[in-house]
Each structure stands twice: as C-alpha cells, then as structure tokens.
Amino acid sequence: MARRLRPVELDFVGTAPTRLVFTAGLSAPPEAVYRALAEDVTGWPRWFGAVTMCRPTAGGAGREVRLKGGVRFQETILASESGERYAYRVDVTNAPAIRALLEEWRLTPAGPAGPAGTGTRVRWTFAAAGPAPLRLALRLGRPGLGRAFRDAVRALDRRLASTPA
C-alpha cells in the first residue's frame, strides 16, 4: 500500500538521521553525466540495474520510479543544476518504514580522464528517516547499496562512452 512520506527539503541531505554517501569516478564530463541523470530519465533502467522503470511526471518536476522487487516511488525534483547537482525527494512509496527520503547526486570535474579531457566525480547521498529498525537495516544494507551504486556508475560510464556526443 502506498503512503505519503514527510516532505523534506534540500537541507535534509545534511541533517537526515541516516545518511549513506557513496562516490565514484566516470570518464564522461559532468554535463554528459547530468544529462543522463536529469534529462534522460527514461534511460535509467538501461544503466541502473535496480531500476525497472523511470518516467518524468508533473511536466518534468517529478518522477515515477519502480525498482526490482516491486518498490515504487513518486518523487519531486528539488534541485536540477546542469553539470553540478540533481536531487529529489520521495513523496509517496510502498516501501515500509521509511518516513522521509531524499537522494542527491553531486557532480564535480575530476580532471583529465576521458577523450573529452575531463571526467566526473559523482557523490550520491541517500538521506533517510525512519524508526530504529529501518536505520539498522540501512546500515546493514550499506555494502549492497554501495555495490548497486558502483555497478550503476560503471554501466553509465560505458553507456556514455558508446553514445555519440
């Protein structure tokens, strides 16, 4: 059953009771990574293995996301800064126990790495609030979430390398 979560703003990324932060590098420049994150929303399932469907809603101000296992999210985009940041909060989900959830993708140039001359350092923050059992589950699930992130970033990097600019 879907339920509405507590609406949070961008500052939640730094104040959430549970914050999982992961980083990785890509050879693609920040602008290309940003386009894949924010502009090619329907393309997420092609590089993020946990995502089975992703589509823009509300004229691009939101997203509907489905994950393997049947978890669904309705999200609001909170930040969309070309080449720098993409962040969204979950407004409605069928995932149990979560009270608030915000994800932020920060992009920074990473120096010479690819044919275009610059790579990208990606920092993904998964900020959540919920009862103690959820916080424990997220801490225990951190290695798996980190692996899913790293696999997704590698797949995205391969995808961007094979896509003409």
Rank of each mutant, 00 (worst) to 15 (best):
R147K: 14
T118C: 08
R106Y: 07
Y88H: 14
A127L: 03
E75K: 06
Y86G: 01
V65K: 00
A127C: 11
E104Y: 02
A128V: 10
A95F: 08
A97T: 07
T108S: 12
E81I: 03
V71F: 00
G69Q: 08
R72K: 14
P96Y: 11
G111F: 07
P112A: 14
A129K: 04
T118N: 09
G130W: 01
A100T: 14
A61I: 10
G130Y: 06
G117D: 10
G70S: 15
R135G: 12
V92W: 15
L67E: 01
L140K: 11
G144E: 05
V71E: 01
T120H: 13
I77L: 14
R85H: 05
W124Q: 02
A79S: 13
P131A: 13
R147N: 03
E104M: 05
L138D: 05
E75D: 14
A58T: 06
L102K: 02
E64S: 15
Y88G: 06
G144F: 10
I98S: 01
R135P: 00
T125W: 08
G119V: 03
A110G: 13
F126D: 07
S82A: 15
F126M: 09
L78Q: 02
Q74A: 05
R66V: 12
P115K: 01
T108G: 01
G117K: 09
I98K: 00
N94R: 02
L138V: 04
G117F: 03
L102N: 08
P96V: 12
R99P: 08
P112V: 09
P112K: 06
A58V: 09
G119T: 06
R139A: 15
E64H: 12
W124N: 00
R135H: 14
Y86V: 00
R135Q: 12
G114V: 02
F73L: 13
G69C: 07
A61Y: 00
G130R: 00
Y86S: 03
W105G: 05
A79D: 04
G144M: 10
G111K: 07
E84S: 08
A116S: 11
A137I: 06
G130N: 04
G83L: 15
R121Y: 07
G83S: 12
W124D: 00
N94S: 07
G111R: 15
A100Q: 11
G141F: 00
A79N: 06
G117E: 11
R89F: 11
R121H: 13
R85E: 15
R121K: 14
K68Y: 03
E81C: 04
I77H: 10
G114T: 09
E84M: 14
E75Y: 02
A132K: 10
G119I: 04
Y88A: 14
L138W: 01
D91H: 13
E104Q: 15
T125A: 04
V90C: 15
R85M: 07
A127H: 00
G117C: 02
E103I: 12
F126R: 02
L138Y: 03
L134H: 04
W105V: 02
A129R: 06
R89T: 04
G117S: 10
L107W: 11
R63W: 01
P143Y: 06
L145G: 09
R72V: 13
Q74S: 12
P109V: 01
R89G: 05
R72A: 14
V71I: 11
L107P: 11
V90Y: 14
A79L: 04
Y86D: 10
Y86K: 02
G59F: 10
